[in-house]
Design a protein around this nucleic acid. Structure first.
Lengths: 342, 342
DNA sequence: AACGTTCGGGCGAACGTTCGCTTTACCCAT
DNA sequence: ATGGGTAAAGCGAACGTTCGCCCGAACGTT
């Protein structure tokens, strides 16, 4: 193990005190240009890199952002993109992402967050997959711990979040289907607890209502976010009497849409021709499905960046002009929503 | 900001010196049971949590494992499972995963690893998506920095790795297809640089040879790991003269298999009936494709665990009985490999 | 000639641990 | 009584920084 070089090594090389080296490195020094360059030369020569533990101890901060993985679910493609951009933004500001695991036990989970923060292992948290009344959020607010969430929560809570306007996204989808002449539009949504699901569902309801179309309860099917559940969902729709068969199925995610497309193909229907299917997320594969999937693209990288920006402002006690940021998604039309035969 | 409680607080509460508290907490103390319980009570009462920065500074270790994200590629489903289990195993030993980003510039990348380690920000690294002669591996070996990789590399290099026997996996696939009577078996592989791709390809070659079947060069198509490329791959196969059309397509990954299935469906072929398709990875969706995909399931969680175990042994200077671990995958038969009509 | 000011840089202290060595007190054998 | 041994806990130092304050020299002013 090669001896690690410290400030003192650099100092004796440059012929100054080690504290002066520290100041120069942090740009807080008042030194002659030649002393400064002597110091930089020494730093370069010895390949000095500051020891983060020492710095963290002194500055009482870890320059680490905690992010908890709850489980490996079907939403990973979205979360991965989110995390990637978040990590990138964090690094631009000298921070890194620290991963830890939580389960599904609310009490235990908040304790995990608490432990991480109490030990000063992280300076703050990033949350995703939050629910309405998420106990983690309640806890973090109460403790005054810096955090930002991807996703809204209880309207009465005051905290930083970034979200994509799911209602708007589905409204764009339904508008698109209405334009193509569809009237019997069904929706495969998520279980009712899901807050994100509720927002997207609201988009479906509002546009159907606006178009003067009936909100048939049979057309609103709630399923888990898996391919299998999507296939099962369309099976339910196809079990309806023929005059109630939808001509379009709005799916709340691409994963479900893939299941729906499989299920419809298995029933002998040509997606994009006999029936329209739409998704949500624009996962990489969507473009290359058979047929390519009409879907909604969320500005995930913008979310990742905004979330980290907001978090760092909290950590560094900077003023925050706007605590909640709602971004608009964008409809991506492909062949799965076909052309309606009128 | 509530004042953080330190060893000294606990000590004065328990009426001992703070160093004694430290010893008790680390199980290195020689104290009367009653003193010990007084200390534990104080710890409990004040909710004391050790400050990791201070501990890290003192012990010269960060209890952090570095993992670099190279990019968001189609292999994420596998890497996510790997990472999840790695994080879990790490936590069982008091370590956490620290994420950082690298690009594709070899020199810059090794510098990033170097910087992370020199600052003592991490105690070691986990690598994935490695190539033959990966410069990161060369660098880490040379510097004597602890690391373990998911995937082998240059046979002449001496380092810790865990891998899944890709040759064996594809051999199982080909055996399965041969049993079903297939003779005209094609393969969609990865670009020739990919070491993992080479291993899997070797499985194809060896079994074809063993069965006395010709290795037609047209049946070996190399494509990128995307759905699109898979579809393009089968298009090439279908462009062959009819008597050279394969009856089975062995795909090197599920992602490519999905593309292949799409491409075949688009050409009017019934996968699992007119032609067999197999994948590799058993991504969550495979089971629910149309038809369900015959594929190879890798023991990814075992890999994640083994990789971390090996790394921690290096970090803690424990003896390592075996530096390279090769695990066997398992064939999962579903309907996409159909039943050959003989 | 005596006196502020400014510049360049040194110095001590502290962040919260861990760890090895010392000290105190007590017990027992001589 | 004296000494040796051990158990229990204290003590000093160190890990590598950052930060505020102090100090000496050089300078110009009255």
């Amino acid at each position: 193990m090669p001896k690690t070089t410290t400030l003192k090594d650099v100092a004796s090389q440059a012929g100054v005190s080690y504290q002066t080296v520290s100041k120069v490195l942090n740009g807080k020094a008042n030194v002659t240009p030649e002393t400064e360059s002597r110091i930089w030369d020494a730093v370069e020569m010895l390949g000095y890199k500051p020891n983060v533990s020492a710095r963290n101890l002194r500055t009482q901060s870890s320059h680490l952002i905690g992010y908890a993985w709850r489980a490996l679910d079907e939403n990973r493609p979205v979360l991965d993109r989110f995390l990637y951009k978040a990590a990138q933004t964090a690094e631009e500001h000298g921070y890194h992402l620290l991963t830890f695991l939580i389960g599904s036990d609310d009490l235990m989970d908040t304790q995990t967050y608490q432990a991480m923060y109490d030990r000063r292992q992280v300076d703050g948290f990033l949350l995703a997959d939050t629910n309405q009344n998420d106990p983690r959020i309640a806890y973090l607010i109460e403790q005054g711990i810096p955090f930002t969430s991807f996703g809204q929560a209880n309207k009465n809570w005051d905290f930083c979040w970034v979200d994509v306007d799911g209602q708007d996204g589905i409204e764009q989808v339904v508008d698109h289907l209405l334009e193509r002449g569809h009237q019997r539009i069904a929706m495969l949504g998520w279980p009712a607890e899901s807050q994100t699901g509720q927002h997207r569902e609201a988009g479906y309801r509002s546009k159907m209502k606006e178009a003067g179309l009936p909100l048939e309860t049979e057309w609103m099917v709630r399923v888990d976010n898996t391919v299998q559940a999507g296939a099962e969902g369309v099976r339910q729709l196809l079990a309806l009497p023929t005059d109630k068969h939808p001509t379009a199925v709005v799916c709340i995610s691409d994963v479900i849409a893939i299941g729906a497309m499989n299920g419809l193909a298995a029933a002998g229907l040509q997606v994009g021709q006999d029936i329209a299917v739409t998704g949500y997320d624009d996962i990489p594969m969507s473009e290359f499905l058979h047929p390519p999937l009409t879907t909604v693209r969320q500005p995930i990288t913008a979310v990742g960046q905004a979330v980290v920006d907001l978090l760092l402002k909290q950590i560094n006690n900077q003023s925050i002009e706007q605590k909640g940021i709602l971004l608009k998604p964008r409809l991506v039309v492909r062949r799965s929503s076909g052309v309606m035969r009128l």
